[in-house]
Computed example of a mutant assay.
Amino acid sequence: MSLKLYFDLMSQPSRALYILLKKINYQFEPKYVDLRKAEHYSEEFTKINRIQRVPVIDHNGFILTESVAIYNYLSREGIIPDSLFPKESKQRARVEEFLEWHHIGLRLHCAMFFRVVYMDPILFNRKNTPDKVATYEGRMETSLEDFDTKWLGRGHDYVAGDSITVADLVAACELEQPRMAGYDPKKKYSNIATWYEKVRDHFNPYYDEAHVILNKVVAKQAKTAAKL
């Protein structure tokens, strides 16, 4: 195949790219990199991506890292349809505007909450203090409030306007991550809840396919919490 995708579905940007390629019916060779086994630090994978992160694509020998760069490249190559990543300058700028904000505005705080509340106790075998959890939850909720009101609460159906784009997929996959730490943004933010269902429906069945493992983790955590 001409496109290889190196990914792990526990990675938010990996899930988004996997779902996108499935949705547009673009054939690719899946190359699973198990983050839980630290395969991204292996010598073999480091030769592919010196930064040791997923996702990565290999398109006819051209290796590219960083998901936003990958989206832009696949769009220029005519692989992503204009409907999901517009080529028209102003429409595309709106998508890129969100993707630029997303890294620090949304991803940072959702990912850090997930890491502190879910991953650190597993990795370091220690419990978090309530104050520490509250600090990271507060930072995340500030970013969620911005997303709910300043991106979704502007009279448009989607992040970049009235049409669904890769920006929506990227954001939706990000908001799945804190669910594994017991926090579901849809339960507190009404704009997010309405928007999320539309994004999920648009990208299904692949959206649910990519989140099977994550949803199993969420269910297991909820079961454990109910026993406490």
Results as ranks from 00 to 15, higher is better:
78 G>N: 06
108 L>T: 11
42 S>T: 03
108 L>N: 13
60 N>G: 14
22 K>A: 02
219 A>D: 14
23 K>A: 11
2 S>T: 15
129 T>A: 15
214 L>P: 00
84 L>Q: 07
171 A>M: 11
196 Y>L: 03
46 T>R: 06
166 V>A: 01
217 V>Y: 10
44 E>N: 10
60 N>W: 09
199 V>Q: 01
88 E>C: 01
56 V>D: 08
82 D>L: 03
135 T>V: 09
189 Y>A: 05
188 K>C: 11
198 K>C: 09
134 A>T: 13
31 K>A: 03
201 D>H: 10
203 F>Y: 10
162 D>S: 08
167 A>C: 12
133 V>Y: 02
152 L>M: 03
5 L>E: 00
154 R>N: 15
29 E>T: 14
114 F>C: 08
77 E>L: 15
204 N>P: 00
69 A>E: 04
3 L>V: 13
173 C>N: 14
80 I>Y: 12
97 E>G: 07
66 E>C: 05
11 S>V: 06
188 K>E: 15
32 Y>G: 07
25 N>S: 15
11 S>G: 10
205 P>M: 02
84 L>A: 05
123 L>A: 13
4 K>W: 09
136 Y>V: 01
175 L>F: 06
113 F>Y: 13
27 Q>S: 12
58 D>F: 11
195 W>D: 01
39 E>H: 12
106 L>S: 09
136 Y>Q: 11
139 R>A: 04
172 A>L: 05
58 D>S: 13
141 E>S: 12
218 V>I: 15
158 Y>W: 05
57 I>N: 00
95 V>W: 10
53 R>T: 12
226 A>Q: 14
110 C>Q: 04
125 N>G: 05
40 H>W: 06
208 D>T: 02
1 M>L: 14
87 K>Q: 12
192 I>E: 07
6 Y>W: 07
223 K>M: 13
67 S>A: 09
73 Y>N: 15
137 E>F: 11
125 N>E: 09
19 I>M: 10
195 W>N: 03
58 D>V: 01
164 I>M: 05
18 Y>N: 14
28 F>H: 04
99 L>H: 02
34 D>E: 09
1 M>Y: 07
2 S>F: 08
158 Y>C: 07
65 T>I: 11
4 K>G: 11
65 T>K: 12
110 C>W: 00
33 V>S: 11
102 H>F: 14
152 L>W: 03
142 T>V: 09
116 V>L: 04
208 D>F: 04
58 D>R: 09
52 Q>H: 11
176 E>W: 00
52 Q>R: 15
36 R>E: 14
117 V>M: 00
90 K>E: 15
172 A>R: 05
59 H>S: 09
159 V>Q: 08
